[in-house]
Design a protein around this nucleic acid. Structure first.
Length: 292
DNA sequence: TGCGTTGTTTCACC
DNA sequence: CGGTGAAACAACGC
């Protein structure tokens, strides 16, 4: 079983920072696109128009990135579950965000590396996607606002808990499992399967409970746990790769992917169930199905 | 070989 | 019409 580091918001934000730090101000000198179908529903159906352009900024909303170039063109990008951003600098250092395949010390381009973006000065941005589920769209920068708006994203999960407070009332009106609600990007933007499990563990709420069944203290704990879990992930996503190896932080994730292992809080074995068709990990003692 | 995998969209149904 | 749950979809490893 492949170890997953699926691109959720912390990984996408890490990718944004890498792209902005290492590529902004640089000009694209050439693009080798070996998988043109990644441009799905793209208003401009080719990357060729970006050659010769300079990257000005990199924006993110939820898990969607926009690379904004000179001449008012933007490339929107979604890494979905297996996208990887790799930046090779002329000094030989490599910087990564997203899925762990290709591995950090593999030769590039890897067989799952689909696009090479060559930048002035010898910097290369490799976009890999072993599952080929991600997408790119090229459009005028002026059209990105409408393109972002069309996703109808809820508030950013990284927001101050105070700004997320209105979500408490909305939870009361929904009968679906709290986990399913938190995965809905129009409810709150940025949580994926891993961080939802982590947030609900932190909040001590069973993932399968109907959102409307949560008490007020539970709703507030869930809201507080959303930015907490994302910040924990960002802390790890931002960890530098040392000697071409990613170093996981101790204790994270606390429950996701740890079936049968002891809960870090109480030692009870972590249990895996399915909630809304998703593999779901939780501690049956810390997150009881019946309110305590 | 069919199942599991995730983020997102679509669809049937009440 | 809207909420809900399930299926579909992308590709591939096991």
């Amino acid at each position: 079983m492949l170890e997953h580091r699926v691109p959720e918001l912390p990984e996408v934000e890490t990718a944004r920072r890498l792209l902005e730090t290492h590529l902004s101000g640089k000009q694209i000198t050439g693009i080798d696109n070996r998988l043109p179908k990644l441009l799905r529903d793209s208003p401009v159906p080719t990357l060729d128009v970006l050659v010769g352009q300079r990257l000005e900024s990199v924006r993110r909303q939820a898990k969607v990135l926009s690379l904004d170039f000179s001449s008012d063109l933007s490339m929107m990008m979604h890494l979905k579950l297996a996208g990887q951003v790799a930046i090779f600098l002329p000094d030989g250092t490599r910087h990564f965000a997203g899925h762990p395949v290709p591995k950090y010390d593999d030769p590039f381009p890897h067989k799952s590396t689909h696009i090479d973006f060559h930048f002035g000065g010898g910097t290369i941005f490799y976009l890999s996607d072993i599952r080929q589920f991600g997408w790119l769209r090229v459009m005028p920068t002026a059209d990105t606002a409408a393109a972002f708006a069309a996703f109808n994203f809820g508030p950013e999960g990284t927001s101050d808990p105070e700004l997320l407070r209105p979500l408490a009332a909305k939870m009361q009106t929904r009968s679906i499992p709290i986990k399913t609600l938190l995965l809905d990007q129009t409810f709150v933007a940025g949580l994926g399967n891993i961080y939802v499990d982590e947030a609900l563990f932190k909040a001590r709420v069973h993932p399968g409970r109907a959102a409307s069944s949560l008490t007020k203290p539970e709703r507030l704990r869930v809201i507080d746990a959303i930015p907490y879990a994302l910040a924990e992930g960002l802390k790890q996503g931002g960890v530098k790769v040392i000697n071409t190896r990613a170093v996981p932080l101790d204790g994270f994730p606390a429950v996701h992917g740890r079936e049968g292992e002891p809960c870090v809080v109480c030692g009870t074995s972590i249990v895996k169930i399915r909630v809304g068709q998703r593999g779901t990990y939780f501690c049956p003692n810390c997150q009881p199905e019946q309110r305590k």
